[in-house]
Amino acid sequence: MMYAGKIAETGARRDIFYRPQHPYTKGLLHSVPRLDLEGADLVPIDGTPPDLFSPPEGCPFTARCSYAMEVCSRVYPAVAEVSAGHRVCCWLQDERAKRALLTT
Rank of each mutant, 00 (worst) to 15 (best):
V43A: 15
P44T: 09
P44N: 12
P44Y: 13
P44Q: 13
D46F: 07
G47R: 11
G47P: 06
G47E: 11
G47Q: 11
T48R: 10
T48C: 05
P50C: 05
P50S: 07
P50A: 09
P50L: 02
D51F: 00
D51R: 00
D51H: 00
F53R: 15
S54V: 05
S54K: 14
S54C: 07
P55M: 06
P55N: 07
P56I: 00
E57D: 09
E57F: 02
G58M: 02
G58R: 03
C59F: 03
C59Q: 05
P60C: 04
P60E: 06
P60W: 00
P60A: 11
P60M: 02
F61S: 05
T62K: 07
A63C: 01
A63E: 10
A63L: 03
R64S: 05
R64L: 03
C65A: 04
C65R: 01
S66G: 10
S66R: 15
S66H: 14
Y67K: 15
A68T: 00
A68K: 01
A68F: 00
A68E: 01
M69V: 05
M69T: 02
E70F: 09
V71H: 09
V71Q: 12
V71A: 10
C72A: 08
C72F: 01
C72K: 04
S73H: 06
S73M: 07
S73R: 12
S73C: 10
S73K: 13
S73W: 01
R74P: 08
R74L: 11
V75L: 13
V75S: 13
V75N: 13
V75R: 15
V75W: 12
V75P: 03
Y76C: 06
Y76M: 14
Y76R: 11
Y76L: 14
Y76N: 09
Y76A: 14
P77R: 04
P77L: 06
A78G: 10
A80C: 05
E81I: 01
E81P: 02
E81A: 08
V82F: 03
V82M: 10
V82N: 03
S83W: 00
S83L: 01
S83C: 04
S83N: 04
A84D: 11
G85L: 12
